[in-house]
Simulated assay, not measured.
Amino acid sequence: MQSPLKPRVGLFATCLVNAMRPSVGIASLQLLEEAGCRVEVPLAQTCCGQPMFNSGNTRGAAKLARIFIETFEPFDYVVIPSGSCAGMTKAHYEEALAEDPPWAERARKLATRTWEITSFLTDVMHFVPRGRSLQATATYHDSCSGLRELGVFAQPRALLQQVQGLEMRKLEGSDVCCGFGGTFCVKYAAISNGIVDEKAMAIERTGADLLLGGDLGCLMNMAGKLSRRKSPVRVMHTVEVLAGMAGAAAIGEAE
Rank of each mutant, 00 (worst) to 15 (best):
A104L: 07
V124H: 04
P101A: 06
A136L: 10
R106C: 01
L110M: 08
W115H: 15
K109N: 09
T118W: 01
D100N: 11
E105L: 11
W103G: 03
H126E: 12
W103A: 09
R106T: 02
R113L: 10
A104E: 04
E116Y: 07
V124T: 10
V124I: 14
D123T: 15
P102M: 04
R132P: 05
V124N: 02
K109G: 00
A111C: 12
R106E: 03
R132T: 11
T118Q: 12
A136F: 05
R130I: 11
T137H: 10
E105C: 06
R108S: 14
S119F: 02
E99P: 02
F127R: 09
V128F: 13
A111R: 05
F120R: 00
R130L: 15
I117A: 00
H126I: 04
M125Q: 13
A107P: 00
F120M: 00
V124C: 01
P129T: 12
T112R: 04
R106G: 07
V124K: 12
R132F: 06
T118N: 10
R106Y: 05
Q135F: 12
F120L: 01
A107L: 02
R130C: 09
D100Y: 08
F127I: 07
S119D: 14
R113D: 05
P129M: 07
R108F: 03
L134Q: 06
W103C: 01
R132S: 11
T118M: 11
V128W: 03
K109Y: 06
T122P: 06
K109H: 03
R106D: 01
A111K: 06
P102N: 00
V128E: 13
T112I: 01
K109Q: 14
W115P: 06
E99T: 14
R108T: 07
T122K: 14
H126S: 13
E105H: 10
I117T: 02
D100S: 13
T114M: 03
T122L: 14
P101G: 01
S133T: 15
E99A: 08
P102C: 01
G131F: 09
R113N: 05
F120I: 01
W115F: 15
A104W: 05
R132M: 10
F127V: 02
A107S: 03
T137G: 10
A111S: 14
H126T: 04
D100M: 02
L134F: 13
D100G: 09
W103Q: 02
P101H: 04
T114A: 08
A136G: 07
T112N: 06
F127Q: 01
S133K: 15
L110F: 03
P129F: 06
S119I: 05
A107C: 00
I117P: 00
V128P: 04
P129Q: 04
A111G: 07
A136M: 11
R108L: 09
E116W: 11
Q135G: 12
E99W: 04
V128S: 13
L110T: 02
I117S: 00
V124R: 11
T118K: 11
P101Y: 01
W115Q: 08
L134M: 11
K109E: 12
M125K: 14
D100I: 11
E116N: 12
D123R: 14
D123Q: 15
P102F: 01
F127L: 08
P129G: 07
E99F: 04
